[in-house]
């Protein structure tokens, strides 16, 4: 009888340890993916600033209210990152509109290079976003299923937010070359 109790305790302990390890592993993966998003967002922001400068040099009279202010900083929540990303989407959309009215801007070599660069970063961001959301989905599924939910509660692990991109916004950032 004592052995059976001992074995049961051992099985429970091993299960708990493996669940905690799985949860922690997933959190690390989410953090890695979040860091990839941060890098992609930063790159996108840097290119966007260059693009906005290029556009401003062509549109000297209307540049004061043309773009939204994007504020990227360390330690932002997923919702904040999503919001800033959307602002960048709006700015790129505006750049596209402006480029349509200024053919010399659209034809400039600098603008073309920046367009290509932003497409590359866009791809990077999409991949990072999917990687992040995939890991968040795995973690969130674990958190709501028994017995993970009990251990997750004890460890203070909560559901994470997805890094959302509206479908319409995804279309906006596609720049025709």
């Amino acid at each position: 009888m004592e052995y059976i109790i001992l074995i049961i305790i051992l099985v429970v302990v091993i299960t708990i340890i493996s669940i905690i390890n799985n949860l922690n592993r997933n959190i690390v993966k989410i953090e890695e993916a979040a860091s990839s998003i941060d890098i992609a967002l930063q790159n996108r922001y840097d290119i966007l600033i260059k693009m906005m400068d290029t556009v401003k040099s062509y549109v000297k009279n209307e540049n004061s209210t043309l773009f939204e202010i994007v504020n990227l900083r360390k330690g932002m929540s997923t919702k904040e990152k999503t919001l800033e990303n959307e602002k960048m989407n709006h700015n790129i959309e505006k750049i596209n509109v402006v480029a349509e009215s200024y053919p010399e801007l659209k034809a400039s070599e600098n603008y073309k290079v920046l367009q290509e660069a932003i497409l590359e970063v866009e791809e990077e961001l999409q991949a990072a976003r999917r990687m992040y959301n995939s890991n968040v989905s795995i973690l969130n599924q674990m958190i709501v299923s028994f017995p993970c939910n009990i251990i997750a509660n004890m460890q203070g692990i909560h559901k994470r937010d997805f890094f959302e991109v509206e479908e319409s916004k995804k279309q906006d950032v596609k720049i025709e070359l």
Partner: peptide, 11 residues
């Protein structure tokens, strides 16, 4: 690189 796998394997 996990990120590259996501880049290559788009939906």
């Amino acid at each position: 690189s996990t990120l590259d796998a996501f880049k290559v394997l788009t939906p």
